[in-house]
């Protein structure tokens, strides 16, 4: 790592930035802290009387005492965790692959090839995002049923392979920032559009692709509604559905719910922690070396 970063900060300035960042972080990390702390509490502590004012979140109350580690095995026993995890990973894998590849291809078409009707089609694509799902759900459901896909994973996977308007737009914006000369040079060398896309554009768009993959993964991981609507077999549900099983209309067991939520969330946080390094490998790195 070079001593002189683009931000060019001195030692004390760095300390100041750290202090500011830590302060800023506090409200953002709060949900996680609360989740973890509640997941380790005994029910009696959660329902502890707190006397004069409604302090459910005081510092004293934040620390679990006694620490109940067995909330975790209990939570894992409540739902068929492994089965749900398998289904979730299965869905995540295909929808991420499908959405990222197809969106990248389509975005390249919109960004770099001047074909007839391009702008109107692009506008149409944006328009598809503007109609609330609440009203298109019935015809879409009827369609999937007519296709015989009701009760299978197909309605949740196949549409991903047709690209996602959000990612297409995002990738188009990224492709558009890449200098035209790069592809022009390849074109003069006789490369096909497909090769330019594969060998010139995709490597440069890695941070943007990683961003799309992350969003799609998160979306699928958290999607509770889609699987619930289209699937009727309890062994085909996902973790997001399993998490709902901890929520009860009366007398939710918060410790168990939050233990479930931690199991559900912490892998994603770790994944994000490592994945975000991919964002750093933009053209910036290639540039700094050149």
């Amino acid at each position: 790592m070079s001593t002189k970063s683009p931000s060019g900060l001195g030692k004390y300035q760095r300390l100041g930035v750290h202090a500011a960042l830590i302060m800023l972080c506090l409200p953002f990390i709060m949900p996680l802290i609360w989740m973890v702390s509640t997941s380790l509490k005994a029910p009696s502590q959660i329902a502890m009387k707190s006397g004069e004012s409604a302090v459910a979140f005081s510092a004293k109350n934040l620390l679990p005492n006694p620490v109940k580690w067995d909330n975790y095995p209990k939570a894992l026993e409540t739902v068929p965790f492994a089965v749900y995890l398998r289904n979730t990973l299965f869905l995540c894998f295909f929808s991420v692959i499908g959405a990222v590849i197809s969106s990248a291809v389509v975005a390249y078409g919109f960004a770099r090839i001047r074909f007839k009707g391009r702008d109107s089609l692009f506008y149409l694509m944006l328009a598809t995002m503007c109609l609330p799902g609440a009203v298109t759900m019935i015809p879409a459901f009827a369609l999937f049923r007519w296709l015989g896909w009701y009760g299978t994973f197909l309605p949740l996977i196949v549409p991903a392979f047709c690209g996602n308007a959000f990612y297409i737009f995002l990738l188009k914006q990224f492709f558009a920032t890449i200098p035209e000369e790069l592809s022009e040079a390849a074109r003069i060398d006789g490369a096909s559009e497909w090769r330019i896309f594969r060998q010139v554009m995709l490597p440069l768009a890695k941070p943007a692709l990683a961003t799309c993959a992350l969003f799609q993964f998160l979306g699928t991981w958290n999607d509770f509604f889609g699987p619930l609507i289209y699937i009727n077999d309890p062994t085909k549900y996902t973790l997001a559905y399993g998490l709902q099983q901890f929520l009860a209309s009366h007398g939710t067991e918060w410790a168990k719910l939050m233990a479930g939520a931690c199991i559900f969330t912490i892998p994603i946080i770790i994944l994000f922690f490592f994945a975000q390094k991919t964002f750093i490998q933009g053209i910036a790195t290639t540039g700094s070396k050149g």
């Binding site: 197809s102 090839i113 074909f115 392979f161 047709c162």
Partner: peptide
């Protein structure tokens, strides 16, 4: 034109 449509075909 054809290449363009081929690229956006999935969508």
């Amino acid at each position: 034109n054809l290449t363009g449509y081929a690229f956006i075909a999935p969508w």
